[in-house]
Design a protein around this nucleic acid. Structure first.
Lengths: 355, 355
DNA sequence: CAATAGTTGGCAACCGGTTGACAGATTGCC
DNA sequence: GGCAATCTGTCAACCGGTTGCCAACTATTG
């Protein structure tokens, strides 16, 4: 059964207007279900049913209408459809920072999964600000069927309000009553700390991310717990921002802390930190081991390549989209958060301490 | 004059429905111009004019209506608006590969510029395929006001057909009759080749990108011209794909070519190539100099950091968006292509030949 | 063959804005 | 004061689909 949600066949439209029609007069308006109805000799409502309600019309009429639709190169007008139904076949995704590679895979995962089910992804960015995020979310909410929030910065309550309005899925944060996809960091962190302990490290520093970041807190808790278990000292350091620059700036604090192993909130911080330490003549990993988070694009470009706790970000995006689309089909959200596994990727930036 | 295109104020909506309304029954439908009209004691059409046609209604009525709108927390229904007018306040952007960092800055540039003028960006990816691209473009074209194609893979003619339908702007390719934003590579390439020549190189290899890529051909032409001028030999090598992996695979050919300096179609190829050469024990830049293209995120993570010809990608995205939005305002597209400057960024991967 | 149940297609009322045409109210000017 | 010009708001017809309800038609069954 062919779908008419996307253009499939050629629509050459050879009347070469020099400039797009302004509409209003009847010039070059695209084909409608009324055109099809006329050609097929049926009522427009029958056409509507044939093209969107499988099984509602007889096979014979269905065929006639489909042929007519194909002949006229019909494409639904998404707005006309959205107006009475409220359904738009789009999902929104809000990320904190479009240029942060952490989100690339999330975006791609969501886009791919959405596309596969005939949904278009609409993207917006919050520039790491809770207010901008809320505004973007509201604006989007009226035009999409559902919303994915990746690493949201706004309060839980605000998110719940949004979720009461339309289906919402959250990535990288756990919120009671809202479907979430969260990497379970404990496994990856345990592996990382165990590996560091085995390599002779005794004092570890965690470089935290933005204060509003749920995930940053979560990771710090994980680090503390693992350090307890493996008998390492753990100290928490603040970063100004979760970027390469922020990493450079925190280098001084890292040195002052006396730690020989560092786990950072994300890979960008790790990369900046490593650059700055190396510039100060410190050898990584002989003098200090560095472990990042996320395994972003470029994490293996560095020298030494970055050891990192990989979160399956593409999977997160894809799972969130699946969750959302299922909810749009009327399914309930999952009872608890969906957890995906993390794992340590050992590369060159961590290793035996050569004291 | 306040705008009602995006939500600005709180819309708490405390009636906590457990699940989004299915529509159809009158539950929780949002406020319309009819509600405002009733509250303000005027006709709906007056409300419509007050909110979208500045100056058409008297200042007094305007005020009354605006107050009523604010009180009821009105938000336009974009679909209802789009249906009669065809305007959607969205622009589409199609990129070849969402995970290719080259496009990150383009995306951001377009998004930022669009947002600033109250347009939402809709993103799609073509997976480096001309057909997928065409399908995505067609699908989008019916729902957006204009379209930006970044590094398109389809024929010029197909693009012209799209452009006849709605405003289209193209990045990284020049097409007669369609507004384009193109980095002028000559300057950057000249700088690169001069620098290589000055460092004693005599034989240069260019690693090409995808055969459909206009920009790859353009860059090769630039390299040839510059090599002629500076009296270097130039040979062109093919890559399987314009990625890190493709760069690794081409390393063998580079060595076989006898070239001591390599310019690659993009930074990803350069990075992969460098990794593979280093793995084979070759020293960069002492034995081979490598110059990439674009200055993507991560180009300075490598050791040595990558020398590259920077294209101002963010500016390209932003300029293309501006072009498009101006066309939507009725302005003509620019006569020729808009050119932006490129420049050589010298880092560690290029330098004196130590033969 | 009549009664009944199940299909199928048509009618018309929406969804929420926009806009051309027009009439009533104001204002300006001689 | 009379008349035209301008301003302001209303009416009603769209835009292009969706859908509840009903009537006609077909198939089933006793």
């Amino acid at each position: 059964m062919p779908h008419y949600d996307g253009a499939v066949t050629e629509a050459t439209n050879s009347g070469a207007a020099t400039f797009p029609a302004k509409r209003g007069r009847g010039e070059k308006t695209s084909t409608t279900i009324y055109d099809i109805a006329r050609l097929a000799g049926v009522n427009p409502s029958t056409v509507s049913r044939a093209l969107s309600k499988p099984g509602r019309v007889s096979a014979k009429t269905q065929k006639i209408i489909e042929d007519a639709a194909e002949q006229l190169n019909y494409q639904v007008n998404p707005f006309a459809r959205a107006l009475p139904t409220g359904r738009t076949q789009t999902i929104g995704l809000i990320v904190a920072d479009i240029t942060n590679p952490t989100f690339f895979d999330i975006i791609r995962g969501a886009e791919t999964t959405g596309s596969a089910r005939d949904y278009t992804l609409v993207l917006a960015e919050s520039a790491e600000s809770a207010e901008t995020e809320l505004i973007a979310a509201r604006r989007m909410l009226s035009t999409v069927d559902g919303l994915i929030l990746a690493s949201p910065r706004m309060d839980d309550d605000k998110i719940r309000v949004l979720a009461a309005d339309k289906p919402v899925a959250v990535i990288n944060r756990e919120i009671e009553g809202v479907p979430c996809v969260v990497p379970d960091v404990n496994k990856g962190i345990s592996q990382a700390v165990r590996s560091l302990a085995a390599n002779g490290h005794q004092q570890l520093a965690y470089v935290a991310g933005p204060p509003q970041s749920w995930m940053s807190r979560r990771r710090w808790e994980g680090v503390q717990a693992a350090c307890d278990w493996y008998k390492l000292g753990a100290v928490r350091l603040e970063s100004s921002k979760p970027t390469v620059d922020g990493g450079r700036q925190v280098a001084r604090d890292v040195l002052a802390s006396g730690a020989t192993a560092v786990i950072t909130y994300n890979d960008l911080l790790a990369i900046g930190l490593m650059q700055e330490l190396q510039a100060a003549g410190i050898h990584v990993p002989d003098q200090i081991s560095i472990v990042g988070f996320d395994d972003i694009f470029g994490a293996d470009f560095t020298t030494p390549p970055l050891t990192t706790v990989r979160s399956p970000l593409g999977e997160c995006g894809s799972r969130a989209a699946t969750l959302l689309l299922d909810m749009l089909l009327g399914h309930d959200g999952p009872a608890g958060a969906v957890r995906v596994d993390t794992e340590l990727v050992v590369r060159g930036s961590s290793g035996r301490l050569m004291a």
